[in-house]
Design a protein around this nucleic acid. Structure first.
Lengths: 197, 197
DNA sequence: CGTCTATTTGAATGTACTCAAAAGCGGTGG
DNA sequence: CCACCGCTTTTGAGTACATTCAAATAGACG
């Protein structure tokens, strides 16, 4: 039923007994998030990690001077939070907002710690999640260092078509670290070159 | 004795019994790495994760067109490998080279898996390592997106003084994603502004 | 329908790169 | 111990990539 997706997701990495599964479900808080609603505000406490059952969310950061950066997008079966602040009980560095109407499961820091303590398997599960997140971020870093904006954009669309189709260009630009105007001009060139070839 | 540093490091995060500790030590391979020597080549198998007991290592990537990017530096008590390729048994995307003469402990993928299987605590330990690595990389990403080269350089020197003092400007430039010439000119300006104030 | 925001386009500007040449510095061998 | 070699760093001129600002157009939503 409602827990199907998240249970399936967890079961891909670890095997849990019936009681363990029940306990896990019992600490999840299901929340329906309308489009544009925030599930986290920059500067406020960051006590939850969120599993996206359906929909699409975006984490972004706004420094004092005002230039917004998208930290990550999260689609179905992804987890999203401000990991540093969640783990270290710091005020969040990011906003997290629903790009589309979404259904999420929230898991509090305390409940997660309890899971780690009572069901050691969850350490394995989160180890794997963190491995994947780290590797993704490292690849993104290498690409940002070595590629031009146009190549980064093309890679993004290839790698995350489902995200590219559901967010604005402005949001993609802020993920790639360029201005929306420049992304627009890149896309213009691209269309031309496709037409010419 | 020789295992002191790594045992201390692990013990900060998990508690191990005597037998477990002995087993852990038995799967470590101590290696002394002279300055400039490679412990990993791009394109070759990546079967080890490496703990730096002393010294300083650098991981870097060279794409086909030739512009080198520094993926990470590792000083005392850091772990270094090409994580994606290590975990997924892919040919390494990076070189890893000793910047200074170093003493490292190598741990093979198979031995690490065995540790996960026989001493569940190691899942906790690596979960924490991966959390920290992920958070570091995400902070680096945000800064690269939102700051100018000069600010990134100043942050780097502040955050990692021990690294900044032991690597060349060229290597720092490739970590920051700028050219050595440009870094040089940034430093020139900085010296001037310090003098004027 | 009207309003608000996203996107496009263009001109002027700024940040960072490329290329080239000179100066500095460390290591090595005679 | 000095001279030389190779690599790093500096400096500068010219160029390219990307931003800013402004204004027009297009789209989305109530």
């Amino acid at each position: 039923m409602q827990f199907e997706a998240i249970v399936h997701h967890v079961s891909q990495h670890i095997q849990l007994g019936k009681d363990e599964l029940e306990y896990f479900k019992s600490v999840l808080k299901e929340v329906s998030v309308p489009r544009k609603e925030f599930i986290q505000n920059q500067g406020e406490a960051c006590s939850y990690i969120n599993f996206v059952e359906s929909g699409l969310l975006r984490a972004f950061h706004i420094p004092p001077d005002g230039k917004e950066s998208t930290v990550m997008f999260a689609i179905e079966n992804w987890w999203i939070t401000d990991m540093y602040c969640f783990l270290n009980e710091q005020p969040s560095m990011t906003y997290i907002q629903a790009v589309k109407h979404s259904k999420i499961f929230r898991l509090s820091r305390n409940h997660l710690q309890a899971l780690f303590d009572t069901i050691p398997q969850f350490n394995t599960f989160f180890r794997i999640l963190m491995q994947n997140a780290y590797c993704r971020e490292q690849l993104r870093m290498i690409q940002n260092l070595s590629l031009h904006a146009k190549e980064r954009y093309e890679n993004f669309v290839l790698k995350y078509p489902q995200i590219a189709q559901n967010v604005t260009q402005k949001q993609i630009a802020s993920y790639l670290g360029i201005t929306p105007e420049f992304l627009s001009s890149i896309r213009g060139e691209h269309a031309k070159s496709v037409h010419n070839s």
